[in-house]
């Protein structure tokens, strides 16, 4: 019998975050107070899912499968359903008590295991950062673990096929264009698209679709490499910073720039040596 082969599998990694900017911090435990706050898809991740669905529409004659993935507590399934309503084909929830308290390192370990299980994922798309953690580290770490290239801050996918893509990315002062081989991971910025409104069919599918939950056992993860146990960092304190921009551009040849930077860092007591 003829079996349709998925030519391009795209995984979109997303996170559920509090739907408010006025985040309150529990002064005792230094963690976010989440009670009474509506949770939403991390806004940058909605650009990631939209871009994956657009690739699917663009490559209409090739089979593209978009899989939304999140690691989080059971209620994170809500954002996976939301991603189904805007066009994802399927979703996987990575959830286990053992995953709790993960830093970016343990998070990327967990997601990498899931992606390896999916087999032959050609592209992984993430939002450029989350609005609660704000690190932007999970993407590069994930790519590192999967041993595939990573390009951050992508603002446009110019061309794509199963083996290659050409992208444009936004830097502070310029755009850069790259051609990279797939599989690869990218993170996307707000400029890349305008996420669509959910469709009626999508919402109907989202309501009934079965979302598999993969736990530590399913991922064959060692308890010591995931969650708090697998984390190298621990949140000691969260506070609202005084925002102060103090940018200085260092000029000259590369050697001169290094020299100058080293001098500045030494003055700030951030490095030692001569």
């Amino acid at each position: 019998m003829y079996r349709q082969v998925i030519q391009i599998k795209i995984a979109v990694c997303m996170k559920q975050v509090p739907g408010t900017m006025e985040i309150k911090i529990d002064p005792e435990t230094n963690t976010l107070i989440r009670e009474g706050i509506e949770n939403i898809i991390n806004p940058f991740d909605s650009y990631a899912i939209e871009e994956a669905v657009r690739i699917k529409e663009r490559l209409a004659d090739e089979e593209v499968e978009v899989i939304a993935i999140t690691m989080g507590p059971p209620q994170s399934a809500d954002i996976l359903r939301e991603s189904i309503s805007v066009g994802a084909d399927s979703a996987i929830l990575l959830s286990d008590r053992a995953f709790a308290g993960a830093d970016t390192w343990a998070t990327s370990t967990t997601i990498a295991k899931a992606i390896n299980k999916l087999e032959d994922c050609r592209l992984i798309i993430l939002g450029k950062q989350t609005v609660d953690g704000d690190t932007g580290q999970v993407g590069p770490e994930l790519a590192q673990r999967l041993n595939i290239p990573f390009i951050g801050y992508v603002s446009s996918i110019l061309e794509i096929n199963r083996s290659k893509m050409k992208i444009k990315r936004l830097m502070e002062d310029r755009y850069e264009t790259f051609e990279i081989n797939l599989p690869a991971a990218i993170s996307v910025v707000k400029d890349i698209n305008i996420p669509r409104v959910p469709s009626l069919r999508g919402k109907m599918k989202a309501k009934t679709i079965e979302i598999p939950v993969w736990d530590a056992k399913k991922l064959e993860a060692d308890e010591n490499e995931v969650g708090l146990a697998g984390s190298y960092t621990r949140v000691v304190k969260i506070f609202t910073p005084q925002i102060k921009h103090d940018t200085r551009m260092i000029e000259g040849t590369a050697d001169e720039q290094v020299e100058e930077l080293h001098k500045i860092l030494k003055e700030l007591n951030l490095v030692s040596g001569s």
């Binding site: 669509r196 409104v197 009626l200 069919r201 999508g202």
Partner: peptide, 20 residues
């Protein structure tokens, strides 16, 4: 176009013809 992508035109039409 957005209205179309959201399947809102499908509600005029029976399922046999790609409607809702």
């Amino acid at each position: 176009d957005e209205v179309g992508k959201s399947d809102l035109f499908r509600i005029f039409i029976p399922e046999e013809y790609e409607g809702m």
